[in-house]
Design a protein around this nucleic acid. Structure first.
Lengths: 350, 350
DNA sequence: CACGCGTTTCAAACCGGTTTGAGATTTTTG
DNA sequence: CAAAAATCTCAAACCGGTTTGAAACGCGTG
């Protein structure tokens, strides 16, 4: 059923049908009702291809997932982010287009997005330090929102980010307050912007407390369970092992827990652990009784915010970029406690 | 830059330009070269909206992710599946459209896909027992592939599935061969087709060995870490706790491991565990030294197969459906060993 | 009754490609 | 060398909507 057929069936012109269905004021209430009823009866749906060709709007938003040749791991955070974003898109009539683009072809991919006209805007995932994509997209002239930031990009752009620096600074402060002095950082890949900021927060807190960050206790790799496990083994073998560990995600956190229990150590007593919790739906840290003490910020919520912001920019374009910072909350779980030597003192007192 | 502008710049007709770029035989090699060079120089890309309006092909494939109101968890398997599928799409010039559709709106969503013309085919995720969607899509007449099967659908359709029954039967056989008699099953939600088949395989193996499946040792819930942990605690508190556990995914497997270590039990000695490993990129079970003994089948590979199959059906339609079964391999890890009483005997011998 | 005004409807152009059917040109053949 | 066949190119129609500019209509007013 096309619009023209519908018009013929009703005995009126396609113009009037189009206007009636799209709520234009110059059509009488009476005919609008008639047209709407007929459209419902025939189950008429406008063909999006034709409509978007005519209007110039694709009613779709693109997500570009960069995949580097060496680390072809899927970002574990991705599925929850798009589930949040997808909810907003659905509510506003947008489709979601996902492109998995090898690093080498990023440039081509973005330019094509523009000329192919398949999307009205783009969400940029996993920005790196000094990401070229932001420059590229500003040139291309397609509205976009970055999930995260690109540390040393001097151009302006819109973004939604979690306050990585602050979250890791607070977590480190908290461990220091508990008496910990030797604290290890199990971070993500440090060419990723978020990892750089997390490390900066960690170091800032240590330095503020007069502790010199020790390079032997800072790690930067793809965030797997194995990585958390093996790194913890390495740490425990040090002459002076750390009394606390800060981990960039719950996934290495699980590996840390495994290594500790293999070594016969008790999590939260012998070694304290704080993780960053993205509140992934398939790996919940626990609502009532969190397993790990954590800095928590829902990545699904970030998806929602980014999506709303992008739709906003598409529907009412404005030159000045917008930004939104999400603060993580510190959640107390069973994985932290006073530093071992202090706890000794406490037990002497009681 | 539109095709018409390009044609004008070259001084030839749009027809010829279109044919030259699309490799039609009725244009001379000489003009083709000239046109191609000019297109490259100007960076011309055909507008997909216009093209697909004219050709009737959207060059896009839709993935419908059902999200039920109660369990709004994102399927952890999803991101790896689409990463596999996305690779195939990119290689064949297709885009990937993702719709997150609440259970209640499935019907509307599929019908709209047809009339809106945004996709050429659909991949159906997470089929339930007797899923209505298959009937619906057969009616709608859009090519589709199901990832999994719908147990009691009497209609024919194309699918790609892992041999869930066989995998779980083999895993159970293996445990029985090791001397285990009391084996627990920590399964996914049993309105999902895959969980039904896994349970069937489990029960078939037990019955074949003359063991009556015990309902107290079979669980069916959303596959979280917490679920694995809590269920294991429950199992250990039984008067006769199981000596082996079969788990539907690595995620509850991690929870099982945690509960065992909390109880002071050694994985693979006191209690044996076999998981099903979807080979998720962000939760690898380990290639050289698998943590868990597992039935392994890459869900990314399933994504690739489903995508190729769908593109095939779109480009050369045929009435008879196709199907592809993926066999899981049994991987030996450190999480299994002889049943405790047997191992006692063995130690007496040595 | 002629006129002006606001309301409602419509034919035609347009979005940017593909495709048909015919015309122009070149090559082959009798 | 003329006729037939093969090769190349093009104008125009089409895909299914939206949008422009004009026409038709109803109504109150001078």
């Amino acid at each position: 059923m096309t619009l023209k057929e519908l018009a013929k069936a009703l005995g009126i012109s396609p113009t009037t049908v189009s206007r009636a269905l799209n709520g234009f004021p110059e059509v009488s209430e009476e005919t609008r009702k008639k047209v709407q009823a007929a459209a419902d009866a025939y189950g008429y749906r406008p063909n999006m291809r034709a409509r978007s060709l005519a209007t110039g709007r694709a009613m779709a938003i693109g997500h570009v997932i960069p995949v580097s040749s060496e680390h072809e791991m899927m970002n574990p955070v991705f599925s929850d982010f798009i589930s949040g974003a997808g909810e907003i898109y659905a509510a506003n009539g947008y489709d979601m287009l996902i492109s998995i683009v090898p690093d080498a072809e990023q440039e081509r991919a973005y330019k094509e997005f523009r000329t192919k006209g398949t999307v009205d805007g783009i969400i940029v995932h996993a920005p790196r330090a000094g990401d070229r994509r932001i420059h590229l997209l500003n040139q291309v002239g397609l509205p976009f929102i970055v999930h995260g930031r690109a540390s040393d990009a001097d151009e302006s752009y819109s973004w939604v980010d979690m306050n990585n620096l602050r979250a890791f600074q607070r977590a480190t402060d908290f461990l220091i307050d508990l008496g910990h002095r030797r604290i290890a950082l199990i971070n993500g890949l440090e060419d990723m912007d978020f990892a750089i900021r997390r490390r900066a927060g960690f170091e800032a807190s240590l330095e503020h407390a007069g502790i010199t960050p020790c390079p032997d206790m800072m790690f930067s790799r793809e965030m797997t369970e194995q990585y958390g496990h093996d790194t913890t083994q390495t740490l425990l073998a040090l002459p002076e092992p750390p009394t606390a560990i800060l981990a960039s995600s719950i996934i290495p956190g699980i590996g840390i827990r495994r290594a500790l229990s293999e070594a016969g150590l008790v999590l939260g007593r012998d070694v304290s652990v704080i993780i960053h919790d993205d509140d992934l739906s398939y790996l919940p840290n626990g609502r009532e009784e969190p397993q790990f003490t954590a800095t928590r910020a829902s990545v699904r919520e970030a998806g929602k915010r980014a999506a709303s912001m992008l739709i906003d920019r598409i529907e009412s374009p404005s030159p000045e970029p917008r930004a939104e910072m999400i603060e993580a909350e510190l959640i107390l779980g069973a994985s932290t406690g006073p530093a071992p030597n202090l706890s000794l003192k406490t037990s002497e007192i009681t």
